[in-house]
């Protein structure tokens, strides 16, 4: 049994999301190969070769993979798919874009965002925004699977020395073209991998009030998130969104500020180890999942929290 993992990278470096898929692959058992498809992507391939537990790295280095366009990457993966029992990737937006295309090309019904491996063909996955967990068994000969990153620990980045093998590129499908990106410039940690997340909701009343939670986040070295209500109201960009339709996070500490706790938001954060809720409405559903609840006006409590952290030696 050999498993292929589609690497997530920016050509120069491997992205940490890849490491969660490696752990899921280890639970399946068998040889683990990682495909790095990119342009000038030796750096990412070298990173991948050091991951503990990986047997081989395949590198496809060609212009048509520079920006991970789904049409080109899926064609490449489908060409080598027959060599593998499973094809895995962590469910990032890039993998969600590419993997179903691979599955369709191989006539496979993909299993999306698994949260647990039962055996080589049986998996648990959340449905209905995590309000139910389905145990599913696939009979497809090649299993195409995306992995929920927060459900599997990251594999060790160091300790391996897998050989790197070049594979032939599959060519440009000529169907789409990359034009550009506008990535949020932030010194803060990435939302999905941060140890602490501080999120604001509708209670923030305006995007102009977000700096008060950003100050707290910076003292704690935390990422800043938001509820869908705050995103819909235009307070912050969509990539801040935590929830069923946004990002799923599971940090050690999640601080929900002015968030009522709609089902769709809880779906994105209820696996956090410790949850704090600050809300003036005592009846808010967020308190039902919070380990520590503070019923207070956030515009008073959050600046106080900032001062209290300062007093306790947190300076960012």
């Amino acid at each position: 049994m050999t498993i292929l993992i589609l690497a997530e990278h920016d050509n120069t470096q491997l992205r940490p999301a890849t490491l969660n898929a490696v752990t899921a692959a280890k639970e399946l058992g068998g040889e683990i190969e990682v495909l790095v498809a990119g342009s000038g992507c030796e750096g990412a391939a070298n990173d991948a070769s050091k991951i503990e537990g990986v047997t081989k790295i395949l590198i496809a280095d060609s212009d048509e993979y520079a920006n991970a366009l789904a049409e080109n990457v899926a064609t490449l993966v489908s060409k080598i798919a027959e060599n593998y029992s499973h094809i895995l990737a962590t469910a990032t937006t890039s993998a969600k874009n590419i993997m179903p295309r691979v599955a369709a090309l191989k006539d496979v019904q993909q299993v999306s965002e698994i949260s647990e491996v039962i055996d080589a063909e049986t998996f648990v996955r959340p449905i209905y925004a995590g309000n139910a967990m389905a145990t599913v068994k696939t009979s497809d000969s090649i299993k195409v699977i995306t992995v929920r990153g927060t459900s599997f620990e990251a594999a060790q980045e160091e300790g391996g020395s897998a050989p790197i093998e070049k594979i032939e590129a599959s060519g440009d499908a000529g169907l789409s073209q990359y034009i550009g990106s506008e990535l949020s410039a932030s010194e803060r940690p990435d939302l999905t991998s941060a140890r602490i997340v501080v999120s604001g909701g509708r209670g923030m009343q305006s995007g102009e009030n977000f700096p008060i939670i950003e100050a707290v986040a910076d003292k704690l070295g935390a990422a800043v998130g938001a509820s869908r209500a705050a995103v819909d109201a235009g307070y912050v960009p969509n990539d801040y969104q935590v929830g069923q339709t946004g990002k799923v996070v599971a940090p050690d500490l999640y601080i929900a500020v002015g968030i009522s706790g709609a089902i769709q938001h809880l779906a994105g954060m209820k696996d956090s180890k410790v949850i704090v809720a600050i809300n003036k409405d005592e009846e808010a559903p967020i308190f039902q999942v919070a380990d520590f609840g503070l019923v207070a006006d956030l515009f008073k409590a959050v600046p106080e929290l900032d001062d209290e952290l300062q007093k306790n030696g947190f300076s960012g």
């Binding site: 937006t93 789409s176 990359y178 034009i179 550009g180 990539d239 990002k247």
Partner: peptide
């Protein structure tokens, strides 16, 4: 496109 970390623009035939 809404991608992890921000926005990406592509053109598709």
């Amino acid at each position: 496109r809404e991608v992890d970390g921000g926005l990406e623009t592509i053109s598709v035939k």
